[in-house]
Structures are given as structure tokens and as C-alpha cells.
Amino acid sequence: MSAPRAPGAAAPHPSDAAWLLVFACWLVATSATLGALFFSEVMELPPCTLCWYQRIFMFPLVLLLPMGLFPFDAKVVRFALPLALAGWLVSIFQVLLVAGWIPESIRPCSQGVPCSEVQVEWLGFVNIPLLSFLAFSTMNALLVAAHLRSRP
């Protein structure tokens, strides 16, 4: 038995769920961005080339998504999804590279830090490229879900 709502308070609305999904996506993007900055600026691990490409697709979402949150505009998914998808593809490539499924000859990084090098590893299998892949996968799922929920 819920108390009667005040007239100004929101009734459950499809856009409520969509807002939360986009907000969750922003949380993931911002955590991933701060995490990446922690690795490079605080722990001073040099980012490899593929990391930079993933950063290019991740960092803008930190600023872009809130533009669609206040006030809520479901179209933000249209603008965010291409970035999230592109970053996801790069992250898949790097995960395959680290796993050794992509052969030596087509590795794109010959100078600086090799992108197949694992600099941080937790529990024996969690490394930075895997974290990036998980973040991009979650963000794509959240954005697609937000798109489906906000459809009239």
C-alpha cells in the first residue's frame, strides 16, 4: 500500500528506467576514465597505443552523457552508442592480442609499450585490457537497454 503521491512527484514512467540506465552508463564511463587516469598518472604506467584509442572513445562519454541526463533526452543514446561501439571493438582487439589469439605480425604497436604486455594482473587473469573490455561491454548493453526502454 503506497501512500498517495504528492501531485508534483513522478508517477512511474518509462523514461525513469531509461534515465537510470543512461546514468549507470555514465557511472561506468567515469569510473573507467578515473581508473585509466589512475593507472597512467598515479601509478605512472605508460599507456600503449591501443589504450589511447580506447581512451579517445571513453573519455568523451563522461561529458556527453550528462548532457542527455539533464534534462533527459533519450536521443543521447544515438550520440553515445557509436563511441561506445568503436571503443568496444578496439578493446576486443586488445583482449585477443593479450590472449595471444592475434599473431605477432599484425600487432600494431612496435614502439613504446607493447599492447600485448600485461602490466597489472589481479587474481591471475584480470588485467587492464580486460577491465576496458568489460566497461565497454557494460556501457553498450546499458545504452541499448536505455534505447529500448525509452521507445514509446
Partner: peptide, 8 residues
């Protein structure tokens, strides 16, 4: 807009 309430 009415479909974007600020409370959740």
C-alpha cells in the same frame, strides 16, 4: 517536459 520528471 512532462515526461521528464526531475524526481525519481
Amino acid at each position: 517536459a512532462p515526461q521528464a520528471p526531475a524526481r525519481s
